[in-house]
């Protein structure tokens, strides 16, 4: 059975980066697919990969992760303004992130505005 765990942004907003990463990694190691409202910043994403590598052992073989950020506006000035605003206030709440354990999630494909999550079970069923 697949378990999908939703984390609203409000639940991680006040956490330090370390705690955010630890929370996500714990849920994923417990074989949940995490749907996070918002995105981690790039340092946090890199740290998540590093921590994942440190914890690979036994059944845990790593993660699959995919972030989607909406960037449709082509107006240069507005883009710049929006980027500043997101950087300082809203950035991490924009978009969403899917993270799953590699033991369950075979691959996450981005199209780039669509996500396809291929699970290992689905693949077996198709064979």
């Amino acid at each position: 059975m697949l378990s999908l765990q939703f984390i609203p942004y409000s639940q991680i907003a006040s956490m330090s980066s370390q705690k955010r990463i630890a929370k996500i990694l714990k849920l994923v190691k417990d074989e949940n697919i995490v749907l996070l409202e918002g995105t981690l910043n790039k340092d946090e994403e890199t740290e998540l990969i590093k921590k994942t590598m440190e914890e690979i052992k036994g059944k845990f073989r790593g993660i699959e992760i995919c972030t989607i950020e909406s960037e449709n506006d082509k107006n240069a000035f507005f883009d710049k303004f929006k980027k500043m605003l997101y950087t300082y206030i809203l950035r991490e709440k924009k978009g969403f992130t899917v993270i799953g354990p590699a033991s369950i999630v075979k691959e996450i494909k981005r199209d780039p505005n669509k996500i396809q999550l291929l699970t290992k079970d689905v693949k077996r069923r198709n064979k």
Partner: peptide, 17 residues
């Protein structure tokens, strides 16, 4: 290969930051 993998995006974003 598909360039939109998260590892590519994370590396590029990290270097940009």
């Amino acid at each position: 290969k598909d360039p939109y993998s998260q590892v590519n995006i994370t590396i590029v974003g990290n270097l940009e930051a």
